[in-house]
Structure formats: C-alpha cells, structure tokens
Nucleic acid binder design. Structure first.
Length: 225
DNA sequence: GCATTAACCACAG
DNA sequence: CTGTGGTTAATGC
C-alpha cells in the first residue's frame, strides 16, 4: 500500500465518481508497482486477480498469434490496461510490456466489480472508456487491413506525434521489429519506408529520433494507403 | 506479359 | 539491431 487514493493526482476519471468511503476502500486494496522498460506488467496466459491501471508511462499491449507476435496497441498513462481481459476472462488474453518506466496500480478484481455494481456513475465512465477503445480498435483494424505499408507506417508516425508525444519531434520508443509488429509489416519494410520518407523530406530521422517535416504529406500518405 | 508491392533471405555494419 | 540488395510470389492492368 503505497498511496492513499483520496489524494492521488493520477487517478482515472472514473474514480472521480467514487464516494469518499469507496476511495478509502480502494486505498486499502490498491498496490502501486513500478516497472522498468521491457518488464512485463500483464502476462498472457496468467490468471488475473487484479485490474491494472497505468498511472505513469508508456506500454505496448501485444498478443502472441499463430504466426508471430502482434502489437495490438501502444497505450500511455492514464489508462486501464486490459479491462476486457480482467473482467470478461479469468485468464489474461494478452501481454502488456512497459516501453518506458511505468507506474501501475493494481486494484483487486472483486472491489472493482463492487464499484461497478454499486456506483452507476463509476460504471458509466468505465463503459465510456471501453466504447471509445473499441471504436478506436475497429478503425485501426480496418486501416491495417486496407492500407499498404507506407500508409500504415505513416499512420503510426502520426499516432506517436499526435496521440502520444503531442509533438512532431520525438524519439520512437519501439525497435524496427516492434514497429513491424505494430503495423502488420516486416521490419525490412519499416526500414525502407522510413528511409524513403526521409529521402522525400517528409521526415528527418537519426536513429530513433524522428522529426516530422511535412505533416500534410504524411497525412495524405496515411489516408491513401 | 509487365509492373508493383511486400515478404523472405542473406549479409554487412 | 538495422539498412540494403537480390529473389520470389501475389495481384492488378
């Protein structure tokens, strides 16, 4: 028990709806754990006893497919890590790995269910969160099926710039291999497309630091596959 | 057929 | 781990 939830500044939006008493209860069962880069926070195949809430950091959520690893999404704090797997299944359906140092609160499953059953506002916020994620996932699933590789990689770059770093100048936290797993393409294709973008002055690239020069062009490529 | 795309393989930094 | 070149298979015109 590291934090007292009532005073935590990094709570989820849903917990704003909790009563003081409920927060106290949360505080009694909540454990905060810090993970280093590349440590696994949630492990596919293991039994889930807790809900994981990412307070700080950046993670990748990935699943072992029949052929190879598939990165389902990259997620930054604050967010719940895998409500579907924690609530709908007793076994984790995917692995979550820290890609930067991360702080995670583990909340007892039963307590969490109790909040959902007893507090409508809390439940509403959780449902909103799930809906948003599902819609987002549909969108990306279709993109990945229909776009060709330059489009998928352009989209990934825009995602990091717009959604993760809020800057056109950032350091890619993933290896080329991981970028391939994320965009459903091979690591070679990622390499080629990135250097191609650089040649065409759409981005500047030095190792993993990326600078987007021509964002409009990147958007066009992302849109038209 | 011919062109395009992207995966796979191999090899060099 | 990354970048690049050659090869190959699939697909579209």
């Amino acid at each position: 028990m590291v934090d007292i939830c009532q005073y935590c500044k990094q709570r989820s939006k849903a917990t704003e709806s909790l009563e003081f008493k409920e927060l106290e209860k949360l505080g009694h069962t909540c454990n905060e754990i810090t993970f280093k880069k590349d440590q696994r926070i949630v492990v596919q195949g293991a039994v889930a006893y807790n809900i994981a809430f990412l307070k700080e950091g950046l993670v990748k959520i990935h699943q072992r497919g029949p052929e190879k690893e598939q990165i389902l999404k990259v997620s930054k704090a604050p967010s719940y890590l895998g409500l579907p797997t924690s609530l709908a299944s007793r076994i984790n359906q995917y692995t979550v790995t820290a890609i930067t140092k991360s702080k995670v609160c583990f909340i007892n499953n039963e307590i969490f269910k109790e909040f959902i059953l007893n507090n409508g506002k809390f439940a509403y916020e959780i449902i909103m969160d799930l809906c948003t994620q599902e819609l987002d996932f549909y969108k990306r699933a279709i993109n990945q099926i229909q776009k060709q590789s330059a489009g998928k990689i352009a989209e990934a770059l825009l995602f990091f710039a717009n959604d993760i770093y809020l800057s056109d100048n950032f350091t890619l936290p993933l290896s080329r291999n991981d970028m391939g797993d994320l965009t459903c393409s091979s690591r070679e294709t990622v390499s080629r497309v990135l250097s191609d973008f650089a040649h065409n002055h759409i981005i500047e690239i030095d190792k993993n630091s990326i600078k987007i020069i021509d964002k409009e062009q990147l958007k066009v490529i992302s849109k038209h596959g």
